[in-house]
Computed example of a mutant assay.
Amino acid sequence: MKPFYLLLMVLWGILAFYTGHVIADHGFNLFPYLFGDMAEWTWPGQFNLDFMMMLFLSASWTEWRNGFSTPGLILALIAFLGGAGFLLPYLTYLAWKHEGDTAAILLGDNRMDRQ
């Protein structure tokens, strides 16, 4: 599993570098681009809608995994707004915390106790 965790961190590094370059050139205001493409009903808009649904699924899983708690809600909001920039290090942290136990990583501590 360690090669997988390394891959997660390499992907996060690439994303962080790319994001930094985009912010330097265009600033932080991504919403006009995101919603503007969707409003035009074009392929970039379809991709943005699809991506937004994936962000929703990531946030929903994060909230569910954390038992719909207040910290889980905060993490879910970060997951929705942060995308892979949140999910890649979060999964790496969980893998380290649970020593590679995939069930514990995906289900969380509370659900593992019920089995």
Results as ranks from 00 to 15, higher is better:
45 G>A: 07
45 G>S: 04
46 Q>V: 13
46 Q>N: 05
46 Q>D: 11
47 F>Q: 11
47 F>N: 08
47 F>W: 09
47 F>E: 13
47 F>I: 14
48 N>P: 03
48 N>A: 13
48 N>L: 12
49 L>R: 03
49 L>Q: 07
49 L>W: 07
49 L>K: 02
50 D>R: 07
50 D>S: 12
51 F>T: 06
51 F>H: 08
51 F>L: 14
52 M>Q: 13
52 M>P: 05
53 M>C: 01
53 M>G: 02
53 M>D: 02
53 M>Q: 04
54 M>G: 12
56 F>E: 04
56 F>L: 15
57 L>A: 12
57 L>Y: 13
58 S>I: 11
58 S>E: 11
60 S>W: 15
61 W>D: 01
61 W>C: 00
61 W>R: 02
61 W>V: 05
62 T>N: 01
62 T>A: 00
63 E>V: 10
63 E>F: 13
63 E>H: 14
64 W>V: 05
66 N>W: 13
66 N>K: 12
68 F>T: 02
68 F>Q: 08
69 S>P: 06
69 S>C: 07
70 T>L: 15
70 T>M: 13
71 P>C: 06
71 P>A: 01
71 P>T: 01
72 G>S: 10
72 G>F: 05
72 G>L: 07
72 G>Q: 06
72 G>Y: 03
72 G>N: 07
73 L>D: 04
73 L>C: 07
73 L>H: 08
74 I>S: 03
74 I>C: 02
74 I>P: 01
74 I>T: 04
74 I>M: 06
74 I>D: 00
74 I>H: 06
75 L>Y: 10
75 L>C: 09
75 L>N: 09
75 L>P: 01
76 A>P: 01
77 L>H: 01
77 L>W: 05
77 L>E: 03
78 I>A: 08
78 I>V: 07
78 I>Y: 00
79 A>C: 05
79 A>E: 00
80 F>V: 00
80 F>H: 02
80 F>L: 08
81 L>W: 05
81 L>Q: 05
82 G>V: 09
82 G>T: 05
83 G>V: 06
83 G>A: 12
84 A>Y: 15
84 A>S: 15
85 G>C: 11
86 F>S: 03
86 F>Y: 15
87 L>M: 11
88 L>E: 11
89 P>Y: 06
89 P>E: 10
89 P>V: 02
90 Y>I: 12
90 Y>P: 11
90 Y>S: 14
91 L>P: 07
92 T>Y: 15
92 T>W: 14
92 T>V: 09
92 T>A: 15
92 T>H: 14
93 Y>N: 02
93 Y>V: 13
93 Y>E: 07
94 L>D: 01
94 L>I: 00
94 L>N: 01
94 L>R: 00
94 L>E: 02
95 A>W: 07
95 A>F: 10
95 A>D: 04
95 A>K: 07
96 W>N: 07
96 W>P: 06
97 K>S: 12
97 K>H: 15
98 H>L: 02
98 H>D: 09
98 H>S: 09
99 E>I: 02
100 G>F: 03
100 G>E: 03
100 G>R: 09
101 D>V: 11
101 D>P: 11
101 D>A: 14
101 D>W: 12
102 T>D: 03
102 T>V: 15
102 T>H: 06
103 A>M: 10
103 A>N: 08
103 A>K: 13
103 A>S: 12
104 A>Q: 09
104 A>H: 05
104 A>P: 01
